[in-house]
Design a protein around this nucleic acid. Structure first.
Lengths: 214, 214
DNA sequence: ACCTGAACACCGTTCAAGT
DNA sequence: ACCTGAACACCGTTCAAGT
């Protein structure tokens, strides 16, 4: 059914995203993406420089999904919204974060994003230096949180018992970890996801304090 | 020269680390690691379950490099030291962070690490809940910062001009980014690495405040 | 201009065979 | 018990050939 539609860079990216979402980045190959489009692997080379280029385009695609903050939003809400949006996108497409480390040039989508956030902070009276700190700190926190979240042995829906089970290691070796689990996880409806807001608030409170002090 | 030495899991990991450091994770294959040991790829299967297992062991190895904080250290210094150690290790072995997303069970080294940090915070009077927040927030920040640091288009030594050059995009499209570069980067001896301490201080100040308030 | 088939040098992994 | 050679089903990429 795809046979008649012309091959475009855009159709290729969307097919690659589909493959990556469903079967992981490791499954993204010139051949699987070609197959998903009903086309030979070699046809892709007319629209994409090669595998590396395909992965670059994939990373770029993910960053365009993250919502840009409106310039006139209060800064705290803008940063919270942006963090939530980034977290949502990166959680939905786990391959995107893993690719950041290996990609080269900063993607236009990332630059556009940083520019918008800086603009919003400036409009809210942030000195440029503080705006830079704010972007750097919140960015790092969001990326890192998603990274550890993806690395957790359980998915959001699962029971905390499954979590403890998954770790399942002798109490004696990890006394404080065991205490932590006993106190906060077992029996409680602990959700690691809630940690996100707490840590973000730590950073935002710090920024508010420094903005106030001038 | 390696011909006579018996093959062990340990020698295999060290060879894999060497390959990953020198030529990237993508270059780590059963065949290249075998070659590095003067052995056929198939020999590795007697000590390692397969490629996935080899990568797990590689990730585990990296985390064992991160220094554990002594229990009796003041909490703030302990967290700063640990952040610095983690950052150093993950920067030296960039493949480690990229692998977190795809690995399964939490590594013993990671559990041991968290246990030690929790222990140190508890010894410093942290309620368990606050200690959990502290570990979660600083962990996320450190991982995320290293991730963006690795993703930067320049290496620490290079000039800021090279940085601006590398971005090299029309001022009109990114007015605030351009202003930021003009104000803080060009001509100044701006170092993105310095951002690390600022953001970490934001988090640690927040924790100190919450510890004081009880 | 766009797509393809065959070919090359690589992968991970299995398995029967060697020592 | 440990190592290997050959084989299988995969990769990315080149290139000459088709339409």
């Amino acid at each position: 059914m795809n046979k008649r539609r012309a091959l475009t860079r855009d159709r290729i990216v969307r097919a690659a995203v589909r493959v990556a979402d469903r079967r992981g980045v490791h499954a993204v190959s010139m051949r699987t993406v070609g197959r998903a489009l009903g086309v030979e692997a070699m046809s892709l080379y007319h629209h994409v420089a090669g595998k590396e280029d395909l992965l670059d385009v994939l990373a770029e695609w993910a960053f365009t999904r993250i919502e840009l903050p409106p310039q006139n939003l209060p800064w705290r809400k803008a940063l919270v919204d942006r963090a939530a949006s980034a977290r949502r996108v990166l959680s939905r497409h786990p391959w995107a974060l893993g690719m950041m480390e290996s990609r080269r040039k900063p993607s236009p989508a990332l630059l556009r994003h940083h520019d918008a956030v800086l603009g919003c902070l400036r409009a809210n009276g942030f000195p440029m230096i503080l705006a830079t700190h704010a972007v750097s700190a919140t960015d790092a926190y969001v990326y890192g949180f998603v990274l550890t979240e993806l690395n957790l042995p359980i998915k959001p829906g699962e029971s905390t018992e499954a979590f403890v089970e998954a770790i399942g290691l002798p109490k004696e070796s990890y006394p404080h970890l065991a205490e932590m689990l006993a106190e906060q996880v077992i029996g409680k409806n602990f959700s690691y996801a809630d940690e996100f807001d707490y840590g973000l608030a730590l950073i935002l409170d710090g920024l508010a304090e420094r903005l106030r002090r001038g």
